[in-house]
Amino acid sequence: MMRITKISVLIGLLFLVLSACGNGASDDEKNAEQYLKQYGYQITSRQGQVEKYILEKSKLSASTENIPYQQSWGVQSVEPDRYFGKEITIYQFTVRNHPLEKKYNTETTVNVILCEGNVIGGASMPAQGNAVLMGAPYSLEGQTLEEINKMSYKEWSEKWIMKYGS
């Protein structure tokens, strides 16, 4: 009987140690969460790290496979140039209390962009369940590319191609 109790206690202690060590959130992800909380967004789910890449000018060129990068960087308040050659990490969350929630009457998925552990921005999209609705991303605050850049999409696109290539 005493042997079973000792084994139970050891298993319980092992479980506690493993669960304490494996909380799953990296420092970068915690930074991203804190950033979202500053906006008053309530995190309802975490998808974790969804992408990691080295930002190069070629990733922003006007080719079809680069459209997601162009659109995501197009809604940032910072120019991507200062991050060339650096590792970019993206964490994804589903949030409530976001401007897109009111506009589309649905959940919002946000991608928080970090470089070297520092949040540099993000993008948001209306979502239903685990599916992101189609369309271009909005800024982290729910603004369109046109609102952020204060020009039409056509004007922005022409300027983007001149700067980053076709």
Score class of each variant (00 low, 15 high):
117 G>N: 09
142 G>Y: 01
18 L>D: 07
140 L>F: 00
151 M>S: 13
135 G>D: 04
159 K>M: 13
52 K>R: 11
73 W>G: 06
95 V>Y: 05
135 G>F: 07
154 K>Y: 13
120 I>M: 00
66 N>Y: 01
130 N>K: 04
104 Y>D: 00
49 Q>E: 15
95 V>W: 02
75 V>F: 01
59 K>R: 13
116 E>K: 12
165 G>E: 10
158 E>Y: 05
144 T>D: 11
50 V>L: 12
131 A>I: 15
19 S>T: 15
74 G>Y: 11
59 K>L: 15
121 G>Q: 00
102 K>D: 04
160 W>R: 01
70 Q>F: 02
7 I>A: 13
17 V>E: 00
91 Y>C: 11
85 G>E: 05
12 G>M: 06
85 G>T: 10
156 W>F: 15
55 L>S: 03
113 I>V: 15
140 L>G: 07
122 G>I: 04
163 K>G: 03
107 E>Q: 11
28 D>Y: 15
7 I>P: 00
77 S>P: 02
79 E>T: 14
125 M>G: 06
29 E>D: 05
133 L>E: 03
21 C>Y: 14
105 N>P: 01
55 L>R: 00
5 T>V: 14
141 E>P: 00
72 S>M: 12
111 N>G: 10
36 L>P: 04
154 K>P: 04
35 Y>H: 14
10 L>P: 01
162 M>W: 10
20 A>I: 02
157 S>N: 14
137 P>L: 09
108 T>M: 08
28 D>L: 03
67 I>W: 08
68 P>S: 02
158 E>H: 11
